[in-house]
Amino acid sequence: MLSKRIIACLDVRDGKLAKSVKFVDTRDIGDPVEKAREYYLDGLDELVLYDITASSDKRDIMLDVVESVAQEVFIPFSVGGGIRSVEDASKLLWAGAEKINLNSAAVQRPELIAECSYAIGNQNVVLSMDILRVGTSRDFPSGYEVVINGGRTPMGIDALDWALRGEELGAGELVVNSIDADGTREGYEITLTRMIAEAVSIPVIASGGAGKPEHLLEVLTEGKADAALVASMVHFGEYTVSGLKQWLHDQGVKVRMRW
């Protein structure tokens, strides 16, 4: 039986690890390569490196980070942030990433999903969606809207429509990131995650809001997510990856316990 995955997300800015709270106030918390190795050895199932570097001239620093991580971490890992073309994606894969995460650029130009999927295989293309709760209306039947630029720019697109469209265009997995929940540590957006997980037939990774082990349990069961993304709850040492997995295992969730 397939295990539920615990995925750690490392936000990287100018080659350093950063943790964002509601995407606004970010602060550096260490070396991403060191953290990645630490989590890998502690039983992490998958890693996401997210480049939040503001200036495009510093983007190549990320390739070095990816390269270094790939030399030491032998679990799947994806890289996101600032990918605008197949060329960007290919560079990251060549540097050692397993998958690429598309976000804003895919919302602005959906064909990017199809182009990447064709070039590198749909199993390697993850569509990451930043989503804001807006309430049900004629324009937003699901009650959720797609936003970009770290939540600052609403796109007028219904979140459920976008998830289905992304799957159709060739995304192999979806990250459902709730902007409302992100950084709050009050739990994942269960309603949203479940709605999307039930609508698509590709794996759904829940993101944003994890603060306690109970939140992971909730989203992996009630929320129907295939994987749960964690960030600050492990970055600051409050919880460990192995500790979270042991706890989930004790609650009867199938997770990988031998590594």
Partner: peptide
């Protein structure tokens, strides 16, 4: 019946 997703992605025994 679509009970299981295809592709089979993830860790398995």
């Amino acid at each position: 019946d679509r009970v299981l997703k295809v592709p089979h992605i993830g860790w398995n025994e």
